[in-house]
Structures are given as C-alpha cells and as structure tokens.
C-alpha cells in the first residue's frame, strides 16, 4: 500500500494499473498492488509512472489469455483518467457518508462509473470495495458500463404506461437495442406526466412521438 502511493501517476497510467489489478483474484490483490507498483516504480526511475511502463509490466508479467484481455480493456478505457477521482475525493472527503457524492461526481465527469474507478475510490478512501460495489449497484442511478454516445431514458411511470397506447416505449427499445451508438435505460417517473409517454434523450425530455422521430434520426 505504502509503495503504491509513493508513485506519481501520469495520464491514464493509474487507471490502467487498476485494470491490471482487476485480473488478480481479490484476496491477493493487496500483495500484488505493492509488488507490481514496485516494479513500475523501478521502471519509472524516480520519474512519473507512464502508460508505457504499465503496458511493459503487463507484457512481461501477465500470461495470456489475461494479457490480451487487459490490453483490450486498456483500449476501451477511452478518456477516463483516475486523476479526476483524486480531485473529487479531495472535494468531498473520505468518510462513508460522502461515498454517494463521490460516485455521483464520477458519473458526471466520466459519463459512467468504471469498475476501475470503484477500486481506486476504495484504495483512496479506505472504504472496502465490497461496500462501494454494494452501494454502486444498489442505486440504479449509477451506470457501471459505458453508455452509448447517445443515452435514452424511457419513463416507466403509470401515466406514461397508460398513455402509451401505441407502444412507443417498446418501439424505442427495439430501435435502441439494434443500434450500438445509443444506450437505453428504463427509469422511474420523471415527473413529466403531462408529456406522457416521456422519453429523455441526452438530458432533455421529449414527448413520445417527438422522441421516436428523434431516435430514428440518431439510430
């Protein structure tokens, strides 16, 4: 632990490090965290740990098929940078009652809550990963997978259900499932019962027919 925190990370290297650790069985992760970070520190030679250092460690130490899986995850990482989390934790503090604030902020910044982020939060706040995972999966608001470039929320409230005589919600669902660029979730009543069936696309609420046309243009 102490060795791990002595490293200064650069770019996405810390997120990549956490992804690598994700392949290690939970019980052994603590030991590996120390050992692997020591190897990386050695490679970095006192400077900041770069992305290539982590990649080199993966290439040298991890056997296949884990290696391929980890390298694939690195590519999926996109713009996510664990530094964001440092700032968020600094803003809120590390006690458990701040946990949801932290997760909300991560989702706002990153667009979702990557599992690597959960591990990083656990590492930095001292709250156990199981507790964090429990909270992040209990509350439906947190998305643990990357949403599509367009995100659609379909209201499942009573009024929307009643007023959706033409099955717009179902049509949208079919449309969205067929398109990888658009992701969808069903949500509790959005409080726009007069717009029923209400559909939220990228943060703006539309009435059903409008939404359908909009999504057809997107998908």
């Amino acid at each position: 632990m102490s060795e791990a925190t002595a490293i200064t990370w650069s770019g996405k290297s810390e997120a990549m490090f956490e992804i690598m650790l994700g392949e290690v069985p939970e019980a052994m992760r603590g030991v590996f965290r120390g050992k692997l970070s020591a190897v990386i520190a050695q490679k970095a030679q006192g400077g900041p740990a770069l992305e290539e250092h982590v990649k080199a460690v993966v290439a040298e130490i991890v056997p296949d098929p884990f290696k391929t899986a980890i390298l694939k995850k690195f590519k999926e990482l996109g713009d996510f940078d664990i530094k964001v989390i440092d700032e968020i934790i600094k803003k809120h503090g590390t006690s458990q009652d701040k946990l949801m604030y932290i997760l909300h902020d991560i989702q706002d910044e990153v667009g979702y809550v990557p599992v690597e982020a959960l591990r990083a939060v656990s590492n930095k706040t001292g709250i156990s990963l199981s507790t964090i995972y429990n909270v992040a999966t209990f509350y439906k608001t947190f998305r643990l997978t990357r949403p599509g470039s367009h995100h659609v929320k379909v209201c499942c409230g009573t009024a929307c259900h009643l007023n959706d005589k033409n099955g717009i919600a179902r049509q949208i669902e079919e449309k969205v499932t067929a398109s990888p660029a658009v992701s969808m979730e069903k949500t509790l009543c959005m409080g726009c019962c007069d717009c029923s069936p209400a559909v939220e696309i990228d943060g703006r609420i539309y009435t059903g027919d409008e939404a359908k046309a909009k999504i057809e243009a997107l998908a």
Binding site: C156, G157, T158, A159, L188, C189, M190, G191, C192, C193
Partner: peptide
C-alpha cells in the same frame, strides 16, 4: 424522494 410513478408535483 418522490419515486412513485405518476407524481411530479414535488419536483415542479
């Protein structure tokens, strides 16, 4: 909290 379907007045 207002999670019930069909209620939007608290938000409003």
């Amino acid at each position: 909290s207002e999670g019930e379907p069909g209620i939007g007045m608290h938000r409003s």
